[in-house]
Simulated scan of single mutants.
Amino acid sequence: MPSNDERLLAAGIYVISFFTNFIGPLIIWLLKKDDSSFIDYHGKEYLNFLISYTIYSIVSSILMLVLIGFVLIWVVGVLAFVFTIIGAVKAYEGNEYRIPFVFRILK
């Protein structure tokens, strides 16, 4: 069971992403990944999530040429928002959460 500090920092990775999309979570992960496997897991999960959903956003933007992208970009945005909140809650509860539709690039 992760400590309260580990849970708070892991949840912080997700929460701070609303204010600093990339830099905040990266800093937390880089500073604490060697101290806690729990924080390391959530840091990698968030960064994989960010990479995957950035790719989905780019593809949706390209698909705007054939109009379906206008719907897909909203779907991607809503899913990113919802999965970030779920990730923060699960991390704070001390659970590992695998975000759906994510390419696991960082292992």
Rank of each mutant, 00 (worst) to 15 (best):
D34T: 13
F81P: 07
Y56A: 05
S57N: 02
I73L: 12
F101N: 10
T84W: 03
F103K: 09
F22V: 11
L31G: 04
V89G: 06
I62R: 01
S36L: 11
L26I: 15
A91D: 00
L31W: 07
F103D: 02
I58G: 04
F81L: 15
T20W: 04
N48C: 07
R7A: 09
V75T: 08
Y97K: 08
K44I: 11
L30A: 15
S17A: 13
V102N: 06
Y41S: 13
L8Y: 07
G69N: 02
I68E: 03
L50D: 01
A80W: 00
F101H: 09
L47Q: 09
G94H: 01
S3F: 11
I27E: 03
I86R: 08
E96P: 07
D34H: 11
P100S: 12
Y53N: 06
E96I: 15
R7T: 02
V78I: 15
Y41A: 14
S61Q: 01
P2C: 10
I27Q: 02
V59W: 00
R7G: 06
L31F: 12
G87S: 13
I23C: 06
V102K: 09
I51F: 12
D34S: 15
M64L: 10
L31S: 11
W29D: 05
M1S: 14
K90S: 10
I27R: 02
V59N: 03
N95V: 06
I99R: 08
I23P: 00
S3E: 08
L72T: 11
I16G: 06
N21Y: 10
F22P: 01
S57P: 00
L79I: 12
F101R: 10
V78G: 07
F19T: 10
D35Y: 06
S52W: 02
L65V: 12
F103C: 11
I23R: 04
G24I: 12
Y14V: 13
N48W: 01
L79E: 02
V59Q: 04
F70A: 15
I28G: 07
P25I: 11
I28W: 00
I86V: 15
M64Q: 09
W29I: 13
F103N: 08
N48S: 06
V75Q: 05
L67C: 11
S60N: 00
E45C: 09
Y41I: 15
Y97F: 13
I39G: 08
K44V: 11
L79N: 03
A80V: 02
T84S: 14
W74D: 07
R7D: 00
D35A: 15
V89P: 01
S52C: 08
T84H: 04
A88M: 03
G24R: 09
N21K: 07
V75H: 01
F70W: 14
V102G: 09
R104V: 05
R98N: 09
